[in-house]
């Protein structure tokens, strides 16, 4: 299976396993979309700002002595975005319902981020 197919599989499984997730973005460290189900016009910006959020989260974590960064969360009235560093090369971002099962979303998304890291490092 190619890298692209593996990433697509992670993305599909996340959507199937966690109904509260309404969008998945796997982006490069430079903010380019790699695999996503966000509409194309939204995906360009979401990829870039997800990479930006992970970079900023990384700096906040370092400056505030939080240890290795794991997750950045942006919560709005209608939903939330969880952004995970996928190693040094990528980012995984998921959009979820604000009233959903946040525990399950975080558990599945953080595991998926580890898989994305592994694939991008291959």
């Amino acid at each position: 299976m190619s890298k692209s197919e593996e990433l697509k599989k992670i993305h599909t499984e996340l959507r199937e396993n966690v109904p509260d997730i309404s969008g998945v973005m796997i982006a490069s460290y430079e903010g380019l979309s790699i695999a996503t189900d966000f509409p194309e016009d939204e995906a360009i910006r979401i990829a870039a700002v997800s990479a930006a959020a992970s970079g900023l989260g990384n700096r906040i974590s370092g400056n505030a002595a939080l240890g290795e960064p794991e997750e950045v969360m942006v919560k709005g009235k209608d939903g939330l975005m969880l952004i995970y560093l996928a190693g040094e090369k990528g980012v995984l971002a998921v959009r979820a319902s604000a009233r959903g099962n946040l525990g399950l979303v975080r558990l599945e998304a953080s595991e998926a981020a580890k898989e994305v890291t592994r694939i991008l490092n291959m």
């Binding site: 460290y29 430079e30 903010g31 380019l32 360009i44 910006r45 870039a48 700002v49 990479a51 930006a52 992970s54 970079g55 900023l56 989260g57 990384n58 700096r59």
Partner: peptide, 18 residues
């Protein structure tokens, strides 16, 4: 900006380009 906010040059160019 990269050192302060973690936005690497390629990402900044990407954001600007968009």
């Amino acid at each position: 900006v990269d050192k302060a906010a973690g936005l690497n040059e390629a990402l900044l160019y990407r954001l600007v380009s968009i």
